[in-house]
Design a protein around this nucleic acid. Structure first.
Length: 265
DNA sequence: ATGGTCGGAGCCCGA
């Protein structure tokens, strides 16, 4: 089974790229973040025509929004309102894997604004609170059984998850406090970093490149903001990883690229 | 030395 996570930055605008991706890579399940539209505006007809007839959608007007689409049936489990702000940042489903049902969580963690200081930046405080709640949620049983957590976590935790560790120490997404919070999330749920299972920690690994660079590929100032975590029970099922870096060079791209994992069971 | 660019909404905000 192939599962892809992709921050699409407006699913309506990017639907031609989604179609191109699905035709080329043929994943079983696609998890999207930043869909930026209400559920009624989600391009379900286009996706259905591509063979993705099953969907679980948690959208809102203009901001955030997550969705899971699939070739095989999905069972909606929850749309959890972390931090109780009414943001559409989580959805979970059950999907049938070769070795039994899998619980799949799709997250869009708050970006956190520009200033890494909770006393002057409420968006940063929201991000840290969101991560604390994720930690509690994982510690209280969410990571038990066959569970996968994917999405844009808006944190690049390791030194080689950013183009320059030193230059980004005070830049939101790579500050020590955020890295510590995400590390605590992983510890509390015994989550396995599936991407780093395949790519050694000493190797650069990015999923996002800013729109502000004149030439994203030449400067290659990327960050690994998108993640795939699996519970211990799925650790042995990890088959293959593909980060589709070239998608950043497509016509009118998202600033994030699709990340696909294969599960053997 | 510190902009630079997107998307969606509606002439700014969030990323």
């Amino acid at each position: 089974m192939k599962i892809t996570t992709w921050n699409i930055n407006s699913v309506r605008l990017r639907m031609p790229l989604v179609a191109q991706f699905l035709k080329e890579k043929d994943p079983d399940v696609l998890c999207l973040q930043e869909t930026k539209c209400r559920d009624a505006e989600f391009p379900m007809k286009d996706l259905s025509a591509l063979g993705y007839k099953h969907a679980a959608i948690n959208g809102q007007k203009g901001y955030h929004g997550v969705a899971i689409v699939s070739k095989e049936p999905l069972r909606l489990l929850e749309k959890r309102d972390f931090c109780e702000k009414g943001d559409a940042r989580h959805i979970s489903v059950e999907v049938e894997g070769a070795g039994g049902p899998i619980t799949l969580h799709n997250f869009y963690v708050p970006a956190g604004g520009d200033e890494p200081d909770v006393s002057i930046n409420p968006k940063f405080a929201h991000k840290l609170n969101f991560l604390d709640e994720m930690k509690e949620w994982g510690a209280n049983g969410a990571a038990k059984g066959r569970v996968m957590l994917v999405g844009d976590l808006n944190i690049a935790p390791l030194e080689h998850d950013v183009w320059s560790h030193k230059a980004l120490l005070k830049v939101v997404s790579h500050t020590p406090i955020e890295v510590e919070k995400l590390t605590n999330v992983c510890r509390a749920g015994n989550w396995i970093d599936a991407m780093r299972h395949f790519v050694p920690a000493e190797e650069k690994l990015f999923t996002w490149w800013s729109y502000r660079a004149a030439d994203w590929a030449a400067s290659n100032r990327g960050r690994r903001l998108d993640h795939i975590l699996v519970s211990e029970a799925l650790g042995g099922a990890l088959g293959k990883l593909e980060v589709l870096t070239q998608a950043r060079g497509w016509e009118r791209p998202s600033d994030h690229v699709p990340v696909t994992i294969e599960l053997s069971e």
